[in-house]
Amino acid sequence: MSEDISDPGTTGAPLPPLDPELAAWFAAAPAPPMPPQVWQRIEGALAAQPPFTPSAEAPGTAAATAAAPVADLAAHREKRRSRVLPVLAGAAGVVLVGAVVIPAMRAGNAPTDVAPVGGGGSPASVVAEANPAEAPALSSTAAPMPHMMVSTGTDYASAQMPDQVAPLLATVGLTDAAAVATMTRSLPTDVAPVGDGGFTASAESLADCMGRLGMVSDGDAPLLVDRATYDGSDVGVVVSVESTPASPSDPVVLDVVVVGSECSEADVASAERFQVTVAP
């Protein structure tokens, strides 16, 4: 073929035409269009982004956003401790109501033995498989595992919570109370780890975190965990059902906990909590 031709990169000659055989082989293997599920996932991730703001990233710092440094949430805690966020209306049937920031978590601190989880499925498991090829799925018998874990890359902002939760819920298909109920009834399936570190990177750290957040039984299993950033800090956004509705026609209230990515005792102590109501 072309091994005997001098490298055009060093001679300055034009790049020779592609060898006909190589061209034929390439032509015989056309790349497929983007699969619909990939586009759906990307579209959802883009929809979950806050509105573009030029000041959000100064030139030269944008590349760092994918791996925002872990920062202490305590600095944010004080300024928001007693703030009552406005009542907000969400999209796609999700109604966001009372959004009181509650620094403290539930009472339970230590993980206790619970029944094993695994099997079953979730209605949005495709979306939930953030990094299925990266590592074995997580499963644990130490604490309830979330039904799904995602990494939307959303930069949640305290000033825009909880309305930023609505796109997240829409992304994973939790657009109404029935969808929440369906996911709640399903057994938590094994979930893939997300992120390069933090509490979502291993079964043990995830179980520890769920325990610290007071989720100690299968009934406490969170609906999802989203690894993202919050005011620039690396966090996990843990969404769980606060109260099961009495009837299918009732709305369902979700707890949204924003906890530092390491989910240490300090992170849990400074975690922020919102409530979101999903319409029937």
């Binding site: 990939v38 883009l46 573009f52 030029p54 990233e57 030139p59 956003t65």
Partner: peptide, 23 residues
């Protein structure tokens, strides 16, 4: 060479582009 890696790469890239649009 891997659809999973490709989907993650495209998503990462587009979110980055979304945020860096003014650049």
């Amino acid at each position: 060479g891997d659809p999973e890696e490709a989907s993650d790469a495209v998503q990462d890239a587009l979110i980055s582009a979304y945020r860096r649009a003014d650049q």
